[in-house]
C-alpha cells in the first residue's frame, strides 16, 4: 500500500491544516470536525495527519497503548515491561461499526472454542493516546454517538456486559468529517468537538491546477514525490514538538481572558466549553507561531474555528455561523 499523501503537499485549505496541527500540539483541545463538499481533501488530510505525528512510547503488546507497565490493564495479561515506540495510532471508526467492536466485548471465539471468559478490546482501546477518525460522522448511528460522547468526556471506557466488568483508559482526539448535505449533527455532539472547520473547493484556477498537478505527480512518480515532501513534513513535525514544549512556558495575560469571555458572551455560545476551547486553541496557536505571550490577535485568528459550531442555529441565516462569528469578533475585539 502506498504512503498517504503528504500533509505538507496539500494545497490551500489552511484553516483545516491549522486546526489539525493545533490538536497535535495540545490534544486537550478535543478534536476537529471537518465539514465540507465532496472532493475537497477532507479524508486526505486526516489520513496524512498520521504520518505527521510524533511517535509514542508504549509497552509491547499492550492493547490500550499504555506508556508504562502501570498503565497496562490486568485483563490484558501482559507480563513484560519492555517498551517500544510506535506511530501515534489513528484508528478509523467505520460507519455501522457495532457497539461490540467499538467498546470491546466478550471474546466469542475464545468463549466458544476454549470455554474461556476473555475480553476482546475494541476500537476505543486501540485509539487510546491517539486519534479516532470518523468519516461521514453525521451518518453515524445514534447509540454509537452517545457512547462515544460518554467515553470522550470521561476518558475511560467501562464495559459491563455478558458477565464482564472491565474498564480501561480511552483518551483520544476525535476527528470527524462529513458532508452537511447528507445530514446534521446533534448540537450535543457538535459541542464535544473542540474545533470545527468548513472546507470548500478552491475557486481560483491557479490553485486548482496546482492541486491536480501534485496529485498527478503523487500517482505517477510516487517515490520522487514522497522524497520531495518528506523534508517538509519533518519540518512541520519538529515545529509541533517545539510548540508542545513552548506551550508550557506560555503566559496568558488577564486581559486576554477577558477578551475570550466577552467574545463568548456576545455570541451566546452555550456552556463554558467554548471559552475553555478558545483559550486552549489560542495558546496552541501562539506556541505554533513561536510567540511568547498570548495576545488578542491570536484569539481573533482562531475564534471562528473554536466557536462556529457552538452557536444556536438560525434556520434563516444563510451566511453560515462562520460569518456570524467573524461579525461579532469585529465588534468585540475591535
Amino acid at each position: 500500500m502506498k504512503h498517504p499523501f503528504p500533509f505538507s503537499a496539500i494545497v490551500g485549505q489552511e484553516e483545516m491544516k491549522l486546526s489539525m496541527i493545533l490538536t497535535a500540539i495540545d490534544p486537550g483541545i478535543g478534536g476537529v470536525l471537518v465539514f465540507g463538499d465532496r472532493g475537497t481533501g477532507k479524508s486526505t488530510a486526516v489520513r496524512a495527519l498520521a504520518a505527521l505525528l510524533p511517535p509514542i512510547t508504549v509497552v509491547k503488546g499492550c492493547p490500550v497503548n499504555g506508556e508504562t507497565a502501570a498503565d497496562v490493564p490486568d485483563w490484558a495479561g501482559i507480563e513484560t515491561k519492555i517498551t517500544h515506540s510506535i506511530p501515534t495510532p489513528v484508528v478509523d471508526l467505520p460507519l455501522g461499526a457495532t457497539e461490540d467492536r467499538v467498546t470491546g466485548a466478550l471474546d466469542i471465539e475464545k468463549a466458544l472454542t476454549r470455554g474461556e471468559k476473555a475480553f476482546q478490546p475494541g476500537l476505543l482501546a486501540r485509539a487510546n493516546r491517539g486519534y479516532l477518525y470518523i468519516d461521514e460522522v453525521n451518518l453515524l448511528e445514534d447509540h454509537i454517538v452517545d457512547l462515544l460522547l460518554d467515553v470522550a468526556a470521561s476518558g475511560e471506557n467501562v464495559v459491563e456486559r455478558e458477565g464482564l466488568s472491565i474498564r480501561h483508559a480511552a483518551r483520544f482526539v476525535l476527528v470527524g468529517s462529513g458532508n452537511p448535505e447528507e445530514g446534521e449533527l446533534r448540537p450535543q455532539l457538535l459541542d464535544r468537538f473542540g474545533l470545527s472547520v468548513e472546507v470548500t473547493s478552491p475557486k481560483d484556477i491557479e490553485t486548482r491546477v496546482e492541486v491536480i498537478r501534485r496529485r498527478d505527480a503523487y500517482d505517477n512518480d510516487n517515490a520522487a514525490f514522497m522524497l520531495r515532501w518528506q523534508a517538509e513534513d519533518a519540518a512541520i513535525r519538529d515545529r509541533i514538538l517545539t510548540a508542545r514544549k513552548a506551550l508550557k512556558l506560555l503566559k496568558t495575560p488577564e486581559k486576554t481572558l477577558h477578551d475570550v469571555a466577552e467574545l463568548c458572551l456576545a455570541l451566546g455560545s452555550d456552556g463554558l466549553r467554548g471559552e475553555l476551547t478558545l483559550l486552549r486553541a489560542a495558546r496552541a496557536y501562539a506556541a505554533w507561531r513561536d510567540d511568547t505571550a498570548l495576545t488578542r490577535a491570536h484569539v481573533r485568528d482562531v475564534a471562528a474555528m473554536a466557536l462556529r459550531h457552538r452557536l444556536r442555529r438560525d434556520p434563516l441565516d444563510e451566511a453560515g455561523s462562520g460569518a456570524r462569528v467573524a461579525r461579532v469578533v469585529e465588534t468585540v475585539l475591535a
Binding site: 472532493g39 473547493s201 484556477i205 486548482r208 491546477v209 500517482d219
Partner: peptide, 25 residues
C-alpha cells in the same frame, strides 16, 4: 493539460477536484 481541464470544469460548474483528475487519467 491540467489547465485546460480545469478551464472546462469551471465552464461546466464542476466543483469537485476528483473530476479533473479522472479526466487527466
Amino acid at each position: 493539460l491540467a489547465e485546460r481541464i480545469i478551464g472546462i470544469c469551471a465552464a461546466l460548474g464542476i466543483d469537485s477536484l476528483r473530476a479533473p483528475l479522472f479526466a487527466l487519467r
